[in-house]
Amino acid sequence: MWPPISIDKIGLLILQAELTMDYKALNLWNLIKVTPHKWREKSFGDESGGFWVVALFGNQIIYYNDIEEGFNISPFEIYGVIDQYNCNQSELTVPINYLVSQLSQIPDKII
């Protein structure tokens, strides 16, 4: 088993990312971020007590996969359970910028 990342190290990764976010990313981040807390993930996460979830966006979460050492997006149906295991080795800014780009594709007016 790998050593799970500590809450202090998650906080440091978040702070480092916040310092590099542009205003759109930072605005979105401030709307969706949550106090990091562990969620279950049945494929690999149970070995370490789950993965740290850092943001909620509708039916999606951003979580830190400490096996691969990166942030990922996953859908969820049940609060507290990660539905989809992802193994990206991304900084936090990558999933945030992805969500910003998805939001920018929504038309201003829907008729």
Rank of each mutant, 00 (worst) to 15 (best):
P3E: 14
N59I: 02
S74I: 08
K24S: 01
Y98G: 00
I10W: 00
N59V: 00
K33N: 06
Q60W: 10
D22G: 03
F44Q: 09
I61T: 12
I32Q: 07
S74H: 09
V81G: 02
P107G: 00
S48T: 15
I62F: 04
A17W: 07
Q16W: 03
L26G: 01
G80Q: 13
V53A: 05
I14H: 11
F71D: 13
S90Q: 07
F76A: 04
P95V: 11
I67D: 13
Y79W: 07
V34S: 11
Y79P: 11
D46L: 09
E41K: 06
K38Y: 04
P3Y: 09
F44W: 08
A17R: 09
G11E: 05
I32N: 08
Q89L: 09
W52F: 13
L99D: 08
G80F: 01
L99V: 11
M21A: 03
D66R: 12
L12Y: 05
W29V: 03
E77I: 09
Q105H: 12
L12F: 02
K42F: 11
E18F: 09
G11V: 05
P4V: 15
Y79T: 15
T35G: 01
G50I: 05
K33D: 05
V100R: 07
I82N: 05
N86L: 02
F76W: 13
Q105R: 04
F57C: 15
E41I: 03
V34R: 04
L19I: 00
N97G: 03
S48E: 01
L19P: 00
G49W: 05
Y85R: 02
S48M: 14
Q102T: 06
I82L: 01
I67Y: 15
G70C: 12
K109W: 06
I61F: 02
F51W: 02
P95H: 03
P3Q: 15
V53G: 03
P36G: 07
N65R: 15
T35N: 04
E41A: 08
F57E: 09
A17M: 02
L103Y: 00
I7V: 14
I32P: 08
T35W: 00
A25E: 01
L12H: 01
I14A: 13
L92F: 08
G80W: 09
P107S: 04
N59M: 10
S48D: 04
I96P: 11
N86A: 06
I14E: 07
G49K: 01
P75K: 15
L15D: 07
P36S: 02
I62Y: 08
N86V: 00
N72P: 09
Q102R: 14
D46S: 08
E18H: 01
P3T: 15
F44S: 11
L28A: 06
I67S: 11
I73D: 10
F76H: 09
I62R: 02
D46V: 03
D108P: 04
T20G: 07
A55E: 07
D8I: 13
L103A: 03
S43K: 12
I106K: 07
P75Y: 06
